[in-house]
Design a protein around this nucleic acid. Structure first.
Length: 404
DNA sequence: TCTGGGGTCCTAGGACCC
DNA sequence: TCTGGGGTCCTAGGACCC
């Protein structure tokens, strides 16, 4: 999709159309640009740029907060349009997808013809512009769709892959970022075509596994890892995390721990929703000067309980935080998902089960009355703090009426 | 300029096991 | 006395993507 977040915001507020628009937050806020309108891009604004920088480059821009729910909703509409063209659709992100059109020729005609129909139906059904790249692999489709922007269609005729890629900047290859670009430029490689002058083993020696894949890509080959898999095969998530950057750095222990509680609750909730139990819990801590550490702990028994996540993450925090040092960001990360194992400890199992019930009830309350309607006591700034300290593994009531 | 939030994958070292 | 080889699991950090 073209300038997806901006285009969605324009649907909700048509007065934004044609203006320089920056999505991601207000001009003075801590944060970065999520998306910029083509008008704003003319002034050098691009995604991932600090909002304050964008405000300096483009003072007349309209700054808009992001609305993830709106984007998800539109993304679902997009998905429905796509599935009407092929059963093999793979959403690569909220605004990007791959379609395997193999075998749809009788229904939709030749690739270019199918692309035009899809482009028109997308506009008609969602009022949003998209760009389409057509090729024999994900790599070619992705790179050509980028070159087709905005609002265009580009077909790379089979056999022409290497010729298409050769004149492009190395940075146009997905996976080549700032660091790899620098390394390659140090070797005198600027264009994709320059890669051909080096043999595979040299690139592997310079860049490891990735160098080898890169050599293949330069020739238009799209082998290795994710690109090999079938389009539409959906893969289970491998981690769930939430993090928070403060508007103002803080060294206030109570504030820090209540943030950890809130993040633990968010992670726990998503684990329960997806049915995962996480074995590894990690804390992410970023100081004022941006130095960032990650500290992890692996549990004997995987969990999906807010209380257990919080207990681990708080222990990691207390062990690793340089006391008094101002903190910019905290994060809670869960990974190594496993099916829940039986503990073989009846008392422990029933304690767990009661927590499970209490937390599910809290999840339902939050569905009905909003995210802030229920929270564990440590997550509330101020009150109830003492009780939590006295009884950190405290049991919820046994009564069935927890929801009231 | 002062740097979000949610992810994936890779590398490297160390503990531990046979 | 001067220390193999293969494997798994865990931790930490970093590049990269949208």
């Amino acid at each position: 999709m073209d300038a997806f977040f901006v285009s969605v915001e324009e649907l909700f507020d048509p007065s934004l159309k044609g203006k320089a628009v920056v999505v991601g937050g207000q001009r003075h806020e801590r944060g970065v640009v999520s998306a910029a309108s083509y008008e704003a891009r003319k002034f050098g604004v691009h995604s991932a740029m600090p909002l304050r920088t964008a405000a300096k480059l483009c003072p007349h821009a309209t700054f808009v907060d992001g609305h993830p729910d709106r984007y998800r909703e539109c993304s679902e509409k997009v998905y429905r349009v796509l599935t009407s063209f092929s059963p093999l659709v793979e959403m690569a992100s909220i605004d990007e997808a791959y379609l395997d059109m193999t075998g749809t020729e009788r229904l939709h005609g030749r690739p270019l013809h199918a692309a035009h129909s899809l482009h028109a139906k997308m506009k008609a059904d969602t009022q949003l512009n998209c760009s389409i790249g057509i090729g024999i692999s994900r790599l070619i489709a992705k790179v050509s769709s980028a070159k087709a922007k905005p609002n265009g269609i580009l077909w790379i005729v089979p056999g022409q892959e290497a010729n298409f890629l050769a004149p492009l900047d190395i940075r146009d290859i997905p996976g080549v970022g700032k660091v790899t670009e620098q390394k390659l430029q140090g070797l005198g490689i600027h264009k994709v075509g320059d890669l051909a002058a080096f043999d595979d083993s040299f690139l592997e020696q310079q860049l490891g596994k990735w160098g080898l894949a890169l050599a293949g890509k330069a020739r238009g080959e799209d082998a290795g890892g994710w690109f090999d898999s079938e389009v539409g095969a959906d893969v289970a998530a491998k981690s769930i995390s939430h993090e928070h950057t403060y508007n103002q750095d803080t060294a206030d222990l109570q504030q820090l721990e209540s943030t950890l509680m809130r993040l633990s609750e968010m992670v726990g909730r998503r684990l329960r929703e997806s049915g995962f139990h996480a074995k590894t819990i990690a804390l992410k801590l970023r100081y004022k000067d941006f130095t960032t550490i990650i500290r992890a702990h692996t549990l004997a028994v995987p969990t999906q309980l807010d209380t257990e996540i919080f207990e681990q993450v708080r222990a990691l925090f207390r062990r690793n935080w340089r006391k008094g040092a101002e903190v910019r960001l905290l994060g809670v990360h869960a990974s190594s998902f496993e099916p829940q194992a039986d503990q073989g400890d009846l008392l422990e199992d029933s304690r767990r089960q009661r927590w499970q019930q209490a937390l599910s009830a809290a999840d339902r309350l939050r569905d009905r009355f909003g995210e802030s309607s229920v929270s564990l006591a440590t997550g509330l700034k101020g009150g109830f703090r003492e009780r939590t300290h006295e009884n950190p593994a405290g049991l919820p009531g046994k009564r069935k009426s927890q929801e009231s």
